[in-house]
Write a protein that binds this DNA or RNA. Structure first.
Lengths: 128, 128
DNA sequence: TATCTATGAATGAACG
DNA sequence: CGTTCATTCATAGATA
């Protein structure tokens, strides 16, 4: 009886050890996914989705107060600064406009939606 | 009875361990599953030669019209988009600047030609 | 086959 | 606002 119990305890200990090890490895991997040293702001997918929605609803140049509100709201999904949001809208607007210009240099194509919504790859979109 | 229990525990432990491992492997596979593969532009040697020549002649930041012209010209050697050319010049400029900074961190060395032209390996070029 | 490297592409940030 | 710089991501080809 004692021997059996002892062996059981030994196996139990190894089992716990293995569980511990597996969990630690998983945690380490997740930690690496979070970009330990990140000099630049890296918006999460949720944050990008929210800001893109706002942009597509027509708010392409949010005011200072709007930027403040957006920033506080997307803080629910991760760190964010007002300057970051301002930069994002600036860049997004810039690049959306550029894509538009590249897709439709003459401005003669008619579309109910901005052309970039059909895809922003140049070569594949030139067949419009 | 005890022996039976012990063996059961042993198998149980291995069973749990394998379950754990399988779950981890599945997670890793899902992580790898990302995009439906988007082919990158691969400039030919002739295209690279032309663009490098243009860059070395001083046109490090071609304008939009220049990019358009370059693109149409190098299309003689293969497919190319304007955005591809812009990316190439951006990347090339970036990397040339980085080479220069690595070769001459203080910016005090004098040379009629960019130092990286003598070779971009650090050790072999520091013997000036 | 698995890791490394080169490089096309993307994008946050800053400048004028 | 458009342009430019810097860093980072992702992947094809090289290499062991």
């Amino acid at each position: 009886m004692n021997i059996v119990f002892l062996l059981f305890m030994v196996y139990f200990v190894f089992f716990i050890y293995y569980l511990f090890r597996q969990i630690r490895e998983m945690d380490e991997k997740e930690m690496e996914m979070e970009r330990p040293t990140c000099p630049k702001w890296r918006p999460t997918e949720d944050q990008i989705r929210i800001m893109t929605n706002i942009y597509n609803y027509g708010v392409t140049h949010p005011s200072r107060a709007q930027i403040f509100e957006i920033t506080t709201r997307i803080r629910a999904f991760g760190e964010a600064g007002e300057y970051n949001v301002q930069c994002w809208f600036s860049n997004h607007g810039n690049r959306v406009r550029r894509w538009q210009a590249e897709l439709d240099p003459t401005g003669t194509l008619f579309s109910l939606l901005p052309l970039y919504m059909y895809g922003k790859t140049l070569t594949s979109s030139l067949s419009f």
